[in-house]
Structures are given as structure tokens and as C-alpha cells.
Design a binder for these strands. Structure first.
Length: 874
RNA sequence: GCCCGCGUGGUGGAAUGGUAGACACAGGAGACUUAAAAUCUCCAGGCCUUGUGCCGUGCCGGUUCGAGUCCGGCCGCGGGUACCA
């Protein structure tokens, strides 16, 4: 009898699928289409086990849909622009292009042996000029539609290397290479007008029925619609001709608690005063230190500077409020100016306590009310002249909670925060003191990057004509490979395009005079914001082909990591709308991903010892022997095991799937990454698990081979096995449909046990084994083909129709009802399915455990949930 | 800081508000074998006074006849935080 030998069967069936063009996506046959897409990888060098998990999930869906009669589009490509390629060139020489294409070749070579049902003929990398040239065409169309514009924005500036840094290159506020404290600097940059669509992008979230609720919530919070009051504060003395300061607030109801007016360090008024106020300029320079991330800004120590200016309180012109510059106010949100209401905002409170500004409550607890989060106990600690109540924690009840208003200008007594906000806005509007406005947290998408390895922005700067888009017939604007006659130098900080001797020089597309190319390249999020559309016609000489897009779009199932919940997915949603506006996608594509699934990470234990200095030393999994849950090195030293850590090259705990494939085969790797853990959750990779998976597949193969060679007539066990076979069809189908791959696999284990122990006749067993092969085929396709052939299946199992259970076989005639007494299980009864409630009650009341619990008395209550459970309350 | 998740035996995990621990790993016992490997069978949350027992799903509280599941508050871990992809 042949043994399970993945090394020989896997290449054999991969060749068979290739030759039959099984996974070539076509529009033929009048069949319905199904587009399944996994987020394409960054070509980092080698695939890791997380990729295997991600693509296996997609492959299960793709193969399952094919077996269900769909024309399936399941493509693969590479998100190939980005910083690591330039960093590699910086660190060890070479060219980002060579590094990237070399990595792609390696990774394709690693992915093919996994037997994914991919249409490789559609593959592309975003760094292919054929791809980014079409992206440049898209950009030009978006520019003419008014979806792109330029404005100033801040970047991380390394004052030593004189270069722009990415956020991840800023470590503890300092440049990663120079170590110099980073500053925030303004540059003129290109922006996509995503904020124009903020309301639409927010409202449309509701319709994304097959997206995870958590992703929708995160996107909604990110876009962040708020209604507030915009109004102006009059300066008591104009500065440089400025008479008022515009403020936006979402809590206008706390206006009487205002103790300062705060300006962002980047506010135009602040900038205009810097020149003639050295102390202010110094303070603002201090505030501009540090990185640009929201986290860095939020966590930075609150810094303020008293400008000496004052403004009149809008409700009481005799009340003068001081104007401060405060580093926690963002120029990007609202108007870049706020009024501080310290009693009801923690940041404002911290600020006022630090600088001795007054703290005045505008509302208080209603006597006797308990607020969720507990009663406010903020009247503790230091009492000072400015903080008479000694407030340490601001009083911020939820907007839905009713509070007691103190001397409210619109006459409120007891009202919720939300009611107060609405009434205040109306009150202010009626008196012409301000205007209720809707604002979004979402900012425009800055796409300029001062880097080489990205898609060049296809515009030209002409002295006469200004900023001019390149002509489409000149596309693609290709990245130069060399710097004139010598290789590009990546070891110097800064953008090589900027210092290239000839690449910038060009003719103005408008007047023909000598002009300069834009040297900024695009954010790599642009590349990944439309690749899904390009896959529908990857070789078209326009960004998309409308007929192909019409047929294949939308993506029916998109699969990727939760880390992309906001940016990538939001940008893609924006791009789909922009592509509709520019005529590159049909109207139906506004939401390009019908269903989204976010999978978890693959983690692995870290094996660690300490060196003489007590610093950790990390050991590769293959150097560690595991015995009884303890790990030992070859020389017998015990290692510390840190479980379930994110795979990281620096911790030596990255599992290379190629070792597993070489040892156990692709099907084992695929089976294991799908088993045990729910797909949305992180999964721990253990070598023992892989071995167990391998043993199971060998067992399945053995069972199939035995059945193939047997000839036993029908027995009395046939009916039971047949019923179990139909049940497993139902269970596995449900599991695959609902991304419950681990649950489906558990059912397949159980069914394998059933089949193995069954003494049914060969005909029924053969049917059961063929069904098992079919149900396993999306997960372990090579083994399934082999079994199918052994058992006499026709053609390729990959193309055979998915088994459908006979509904009559799924019906159970009796059901076991647990009996609870006061919610605790005390016994059970078997009753025919559908037995009337009254009869169940009679049986229950006659049950020993119930009689004992009642002790001659009557039950207080008897709950019968038909087909489920019985609960007796005594 | 803010937004979003997650937390169940030694381990991975199962469980439409209805029998907590399916299925598997590691472990234990046995069968087969000269032996080993492979394979097969069985056991297995904790505790004790071994019972129709008690406890048990990160912690505290609530809703419910009934909570791993719903609600509130904590703690811990993870993701995102707009130039990592």
C-alpha cells in the first residue's frame, strides 16, 4: 500500500492544475463571478508563516467558490515600493530595484510550492512601470477633477542629516541615524481631498454589512463627525491687523467656564507675532521639538506661553480672557484655536493647574445622582486661589447624563450635556454670536514623500506656467536607475531624485520651455489603494478596463490584517470613489470590498538566555530541544521560554515556512495554520502542532487507501455512516462559509474518527471517504486530489462540484434535554424531537433529581426552552 | 494620551443568553512488536470529606429562571494613532 508522500504528490498535482488552467480567471461560461483577494504582501525577502495563514484562508474560499460553480478571480501581486528597499540600499549597498525584484522572485518561488489556486498570469508589482505609469495617469485625472491640491504641512525634520524622517525613524524624539532631537518643519506637499468625502465615507459605513463591526467603529471614530460652535473672540487690541480669533468647540455649553484662549503653535497669529517677540519665538521653537505623531503630541508635557494678549468674553465684554499658546492644540483640527474650560476637560485642567489659571465649574452633580463611572470625587487635594475646589480630575460625565447647571446663560437648570450643547448653539446663533458647524476629525491625505523608491508625482514646475501636469503620452515618468554615469548613492541622507544631475530637467508640457520635474514621490498607500481594481485587467493600457471592472468588481471577499483597519481601507474606499469620478470604475464600486475578514497574527515563543552581562540572548527554535515544556540548548543549558510573542527578526523567533514545507509538505502547513485557532485570532506556531497535523494527514491517506482496496458488503452500520457523512457535509460547508475553518477542521477530525471506526460496507465507506476528500480539498488540495484518484473520482477534485447534504439526513428524531434546578444541571432526559411543552413538563416533574429538589413542594417556576433545556426554579 | 480588540484546563482552543472544556497538542495507562518507530484502544479542569459534593471562563459589581456570552467599572496584553507596510 502506498504511503503518504507529500514530496511526490504535491508537485504532481500542482502541475496538473497548471496544465488544466484550473485557476486561470476567465469571464466565460455565463457563470456568476467571485473575486477573493488577500492583502498583497510587501516583498520583505522571504514569506513567513503569517503569509501562509493569510493566503491559505483566501485559497480555501477561492477553491470552495470554484467548486460551487463560480468564475473565480484570485490574484497575487506585490506592494513593492517603500522604505525598506531604500534602507537596505543604505545599509548594504545595491539598488532598491534589484533588492525588490530579487525578493519578489524568492517569494514567488516560496509561494508556488504551497499550491495556492492563484491566477499567476495576473501578477504585478506596484514598482512595475506599467503599474505606476497608470497610477500617474490616475493622479493627473484626479488633479483635473480637483481631488488633489498643494498646501503646507509639517514633517519630522532631522536638523543634522537635513532630511525628512518617517514616524518610525523617530525614536524617543530623536532621529534614528543622527540621534539629533527631531523638529517639526513645514513643507509644501501634495494632498488628496479625502475630507471632501468625509461625510459620505462615514455614512456609507452603515451599509458595509459584511465588515467586522470593530473595523466600522474604528473608521467611524477616525472620521469623527462632530457638531460644535464656531465663533469669534475679539482681541482687546488688534495685532498685525488681526482683530478676532476664530474658535471651534464641541462644548459651547461650558463657555462660562472659560479661563484662557489657546492657540496652536502653528496658528497664523502666533507666526505673525514670532518676529517681534523673541520670548514667544523661543517658546514656540521649544514646542515644535519632537515628532509629528498624534501620540507624541498627546503625550508631550503640556507647554504654554502667555502671549500677553487678551480677548473679550463673547457673553461679557468686560471679562478679559488671556491668550496662551499651547502645544497640545493641533492646527489641523478645527480652527487651531480653542477656549480652555478646565473644569470639564482634563487637558485644560492640567494646563490651568500648571500655569495657575482659574478653574470654574459650569455644571455640577445633581444631588443624589450616581453617574456611571462612579460618583465624582474631584473635590480633593490642593486648594488654591485659582483652584478653590481643589480639582484634580475634571468632571466629564457622559453627554447623555443629566447634570445641574450653575448660572447658565441660556437659563438651563437640569439638562444633559447633549441638550445643553444643542440649546447653546441655538442660543448663540439666535443672537448672531456664532454658528453651529459640522466638522470632521479626518484630515486630508498628504501623499508627498521626499524619497526615491516610490511612484514619481507626474507634474512639472515651470517658471512661466507654474505647476503643470505631465502629458499622459509621456507616462510613465520612470525612476532613473543610475545617477548619470554612476550608480545612485543611497548612503547620503535625502532624496536622490532631488540631487540627480539630469532627471529633473524636462520641457514644460504646456509652453515647452525648460522646466523641473517634481521630485517628491507618492505615499505607498496610493499604490495599495487601487491594486484590487487593476487586478481585473492587469495589462490594460488604461488604469482599468471598464468591461472587466464591470464583470469582476467588487471584491467579494477581502482578507487581511487588522492593522489595516483604518488607513489602507479608508484610502481604498476614497480611491474607489475618486476612480468613479474620473471614469475609471463603474458606479457600483463606491464600496469596493463587499465583505472583509481580518485575520490574526502568527506568534511564536521566544527562547532566551542571559549572557555574562545579563543581557538577553535569543536562540533559534531549531537550536532548542523541547522536553516536558522546558527548553534546552545542545550543550544542556536551559532556556527561558517566553510564549506567544509577535514574530520579530531581532528576537530570532520568525518561523520560516519553507522548513516546515520541506519536512512535512505544503498540505500539513496549510492544515496546521487553519486548525485550532479561530482565523481572526492570533495563533501560536508550535513544531509539535505541525507534526500532529502531518500525522493526521497520513492517517487520512491510509484510511482512504484501505477503503480503496477493500470489498465489504453492506452492513447494519451503513445507515449511520451515511447519516454522519451528510452531517459533516453540512457542518464543514457552514464552517467554510462563516470563516470557521478551525471548527470545520474539528468536525473533519471527528468524522475521520467515525469513518476509521465504522464497520460499514465498502460502498458507503467509499462515498464517505470521497466526501472527506472533497471537504478537505480547499484546505489540503494535494492530498485531496490523491485520495480522489485512489477512490476513483472523476477528473480533478478541484473542479468537482462541492457536495450538498441531503436535508432529510440532517434531521434528528430525539433530543437530550438537560434539566437544571435553579440554573444548575441536575440531570437530563431524552425526548422525541418536537414533544409538546406540557408533556416535557410532566416528564421533568417526575424526574428523580427534580422530585428531590422539590421535596414535596411545588416549583416556583418551570422554564422549558423547546429542544434546548429545562430549568426548574424552587 | 485617545480609538478598537482580546483574556476559558499543562497548551491551542469549543460553546445562536441554555449541559463550560467539543476537536487537537503535550501527558498517563494499555495493545501490537524480540525491541524501537509507526499504528491502535482507553484516561484526563481543580479540590476534598469520592458525593445526586463543592469550586471554576482575568478581577469587582449588575441584569436574568439561567451569563464565558449582555451591561458598568477595573487589571493585563495586543492593534491603530495619519511618513512602517
Amino acid at each position: 500500500m502506498s504511503r503518504y508522500d507529500p514530496a511526490s504528490i504535491e508537485p504532481k498535482w500542482q502541475k496538473a492544475w497548471d496544465e488544466a488552467l484550473t485557476f486561470r480567471a476567465t469571464r466565460e461560461g455565463g457563470k456568476p463571478k467571485y473575486y477573493v483577494l488577500e492583502m498583497f504582501p510587501y516583498p520583505s525577502g522571504r514569506i513567513h508563516i503569517g503569509h501562509v495563514r493569510n493566503y491559505t484562508m483566501g485559497d480555501v474560499i477561492a477553491r470552495y467558490k470554484k467548486q460551487n460553480g463560480f468564475n473565480v478571480l484570485h490574484p497575487m501581486g506585490f506592494d513593492a515600493f517603500g522604505m525598506p528597499a531604500e534602507n537596505a540600499a543604505m545599509a548594504s549597498g545595491g539598488h532598491p530595484k534589484d533588492w525588490t525584484y530579487g525578493n519578489i522572485e524568492t517569494m514567488v518561488g516560496q509561494m508556488k510550492p504551497l499550491g495556492f489556486g492563484l491566477d499567476w498570469s495576473r501578477m504585478f508589482a506596484t514598482c512595475d512601470p506599467e503599474y505606476y505609469g497608470q497610477q500617474q495617469a490616475l493622479f493627473i485625472d484626479m488633479l483635473s477633477e480637483g481631488l488633489v491640491y498643494r498646501k503646507n504641512a509639517v514633517v519630522n525634520w532631522d536638523p543634522v542629516d537635513m532630511t525628512v524622517l518617517a514616524n518610525e525613524q523617530v525614536i524617543d524624539g530623536c532621529g534614528w541615524r543622527s540621534g539629533a532631537p527631531v523638529e517639526r518643519k513645514e513643507l509644501t506637499q501634495w494632498f488628496f481631498k479625502i475630507s471632501d468625502m468625509a461625510g459620505e465615507l462615514l455614512d456609507a459605513i452603515e451599509g458595509l454589512d459584511d465588515w467586522p463591526a470593530k473595523v466600522k467603529l474604528m473608521q467611524a471614530n477616525w472620521i469623527g463627525r462632530s457638531r460644535g460652535l464656531q465663533f469669534s473672540w475679539e482681541l482687546t487690541a488688534p495685532v498685525h491687523g488681526v482683530e478676532t480669533v476664530e474658535v471651534y468647540t464641541t462644548r459651547p455649553d461650558t463657555l462660562l467656564g472659560a479661563s484662557f484662549l489657546g492657540l496652536s503653535p502653528d496658528h497664523p497669529l502666533v507666526k505673525s507675532m514670532e518676529g517681534d517677540n523673541p520670548a514667544l519665538a523661543a517658546a514656540v521653537a521649544e514646542m515644535r521639538k519632537g515628532g509629528t505623531t498624534e501620540e507624541a503630541l498627546e503625550k508631550a508635557e503640556k507647554l504654554g506661553f502667555d502671549t500677553g494678549l487678551t480677548v473679550r468674553h463673547p457673553l461679557d465684554p468686560s471679562w478679559e480672557v488671556p491668550v496662551w499658546v499651547a502645544n497640545f492644540i493641533l492646527m489641523d483640527y478645527g480652527t487651531g484655536a480653542i477656549f480652555g474650560s478646565p473644569a470639564h476637560d482634563q487637558r485644560d485642567l492640567d494646563f490651568c493647574r500648571k500655569y495657575g489659571l482659574p478653574i470654574k465649574a459650569t455644571f455640577d452633580v445633581i444631588e443624589g445622582e450616581v453617574y456611571h463611572g462612579g460618583a465624582p470625587d474631584y473635590r480633593t487635594d490642593e486648594q488654591t486661589a485659582t483652584n478653590p475646589r481643589g480639582m484634580v480630575t475634571a468632571f466629564i460625565p457622559p453627554k447623555s447624563a443629566k447634570v445641574k447647571w450653575l448660572n447658565h446663560f441660556a437659563g438651563l437648570d437640569e439638562a444633559t450635556g447633549q441638550e445643553a450643547v444643542d440649546i447653546t448653539i441655538d442660543w448663540m446663533e439666535a443672537r448672531g454670536l456664532g454658528k453651529g458647524v459640522e466638522k470632521f476629525r479626518l484630515r486630508d491625505w498628504g501623499l508627498s514623500r521626499q524619497r526615491y523608491w516610490g511612484c514619481p508625482i507626474p507634474v512639472v514646475h515651470c517658471d512661466a506656467c507654474g505647476v503643470v501636469p505631465e502629458k499622459k503620452e509621456n507616462l510613465p515618468i520612470q525612476l532613473p536607475y543610475d545617477e548619470g554615469d554612476k550608480p545612485i548613492d543611497f548612503s547620503t541622507p535625502g532624496n536622490p531624485l532631488d540631487r540627480h544631475p539630469t532627471w529633473r530637467d524636462c520641457a514644460c508640457p504646456s509652453c515647452g520651455q525648460p522646466a523641473k520635474r517634481e521630485t517628491d514621490t507618492m505615499d505607498t498607500f496610493v499604490d495599495s489603494s487601487w491594486y484590487f481594481a487593476r487586478f481585473t485587467a492587469p495589462r490594460a493600457d488604461t488604469p482599468t478596463d471598464m468591461a472587466d471592472a464591470e464583470y469582476w468588481m467588487n471584491v467579494d471577499q477581502y482578507i487581511g490584517g487588522i492593522e489595516h483597519a483604518i488607513l489602507h481601507l479608508l484610502y481604498s474606499r476614497f480611491f474607489a470613489r475618486a476612480m468613479i469620478r474620473t471614469g475609471h470604475l463603474p458606479e457600483k464600486c463606491a464600496e469596493p470590498f463587499n465583505a472583509l475578514f481580518t485575520q490574526g497574527m502568527v506568534t511564536h515563543a521566544i527562547f532566551q538566555t542571559k549572557n555574562a552581562e545579563g543581557r538577553p540572548v535569543y536562540h533559534y527554535p531549531e537550536d532548542v530541544d523541547l522536553r516536558d515544556g522546558r527548553g534546552f540548548l545542545k550543550d544542556g543549558t536551559e532556556v527561558e521560554i517566553i510564549p506567544s510573542a509577535k514574530m520579530s527578526k531581532s528576537k530570532n523567533n520568525v518561523v520560516d515556512p519553507m522548513n516546515i514545507i520541506a519536512t512535512y509538505g505544503a498540505d500539513t502547513a496549510r492544515w496546521f495554520v487553519l486548525s485550532d485557532s479561530p482565523p481572526e485570532r492570533d495563533v501560536e506556531w508550535t513544531a509539535a502542532g505541525a507534526e500532529a497535523a502531518s500525522k493526521h494527514l497520513a492517517r487520512v491517506h491510509r484510511i482512504a487507501a484501505e477503503i480503496a482496496g477493500a470489498d465489504v458488503p453492506e452492513t447494519k452500520e451503513d445507515a449511520a455512516l451515511l447519516k454522519e457523512t451528510h452531517k459533516v457535509m453540512h457542518d464543514v460547508t457552514l464552517g467554510v462559509e462563516s470563516f470557521g475553518f478551525n471548527a470545520a477542521i474539528a468536525k473533519l477530525y471527528a468524522f475521520t474518527n467515525t469513518l476509521s471506526k465504522s464497520r460499514a460496507g465498502t460502498q458507503t465507506k467509499r462515498f464517505a471517504a470521497k466526501t472527506l476528500a472533497q471537504l478537505m480539498s480547499p484546505m489540503t488540495p494535494h492530498l485531496a486530489e490523491e485520495m480522489w484518484q485512489l477512490l476513483g473520482g472523476e477528473g480533478l477534485i478541484a473542479e468537482a462540484p462541492w457536495p450538498k447534504p441531503d436535508e432529510a439526513m440532517l434531521v434528528e428524531d430525539t433530543v437530550t434535554l438537560p434539566i437544571q434546578v435553579n440554573g444548575k444541571r441536575r440531570g437530563e432526559i431524552d425526548v422525541p424531537k418536537g414533544m409538546p411543552k406540557e408533556e416535557v413538563e410532566k416528564l421533568v416533574l417526575a424526574h428523580d433529581a427534580v422530585l428531590k429538589a422539590l421535596d414535596g413542594g411545588q416549583p416556583k417556576k418551570l422554564i422549558v426552552v423547546p429542544g434546548r433545556i429545562v430549568n426548574v426554579v424552587v
